[in-house]
Design a protein around this nucleic acid. Sequence first.
DNA 1: ATAAGTATGTTGCATTTGCAACATGTAGTA
DNA 2: TACTACATGTTGCAAATGCAACATACTTAT
Lengths: 151, 151
Amino acid sequence: MKKHFTDTIFYQIELTAKYCKLMGQQVFEKYNVGLTVEEYSVLDTLICRPEICQRDLAKLILKDRANTGKILDSLEKRGYIKRKLAIKNNRPVKIAEITDLGKDRVEEVSEKLRPHMQVVMDKINNSDLARVSDLLRELRDFLNDTLEIQI
Amino acid sequence: MKKHFTDTIFYQIELTAKYCKLMGQQVFEKYNVGLTVEEYSVLDTLICRPEICQRDLAKLILKDRANTGKILDSLEKRGYIKRKLAIKNNRPVKIAEITDLGKDRVEEVSEKLRPHMQVVMDKINNSDLARVSDLLRELRDFLNDTLEIQI
DNA sequence: ATAAGTATGTTGCATTTGCAACATGTAGTA
DNA sequence: TACTACATGTTGCAAATGCAACATACTTAT
């Protein structure tokens, strides 16, 4: 390892994530989105993974089950999702389904977010982008296998 | 942009950061470190940046000034840092100086953390690592210039 | 049939975090 | 000289977050 933790890729990823989050927050504030970045991200995840149960969602986004439930409660209360019961492995679960309102909201926010992200991505070589993307995924897969993830 | 926010590099960075944080937390728990990952990271930053003032530290680690103060308060209370007064641009500021105890602690924790990080880094091509590192830094520099960072 | 284990989701609570307001002190400007 | 702006750090507060304990229901082992 390099001399300092602050020199490691782990530190860099965590620090860069803070910048990314800040970028999201500023865009959301600028347009008075009425959703947090986290909520938007959850809704977008539900679009990609329709009918995912709450616990599986928590695992996917690496959040505590309780907190995931609270986020879904909040989104449900505002009409962006609805909860349905389903059977998974013979067990009753609650699944979160994004509503049309939720989808519209995500599309609306994505329209606003897109140019801001595009500006950043225009600065990055596409080949590099793909490489970084692949490596991050590889890193997550490896950590997913080696860490004790209790969710 | 790709179809979904969850496909973007931003989302990937944020999600990967959660995995990295979890890795750190598990190592710290395993060895009963008695520091949080954040505190360890702050101490390591202070080693790299001796005599940094509190506000500059907050800017460096992208944390709220108040929260940074609280973290430093906690570290000071346990003897890992001490606060000193200094003059910066003719103004009185508090600077945080890591103590010998703090340095010993960082070294001790780094010893334990190192093999865990090494295992991960052994999985990654060094050339890729350098590339990702460079890109993350470039991304941070760009966002640092374009975002309104009020700290 | 029963007991133990596991899965899923909720509740209560404590901790972490960021924000606004404030305090203090210096710089810049009229 | 007085006023305004800015820099730095603290306090109080609310929101977000994770954890432990619990409830419910199914699976597995005895």
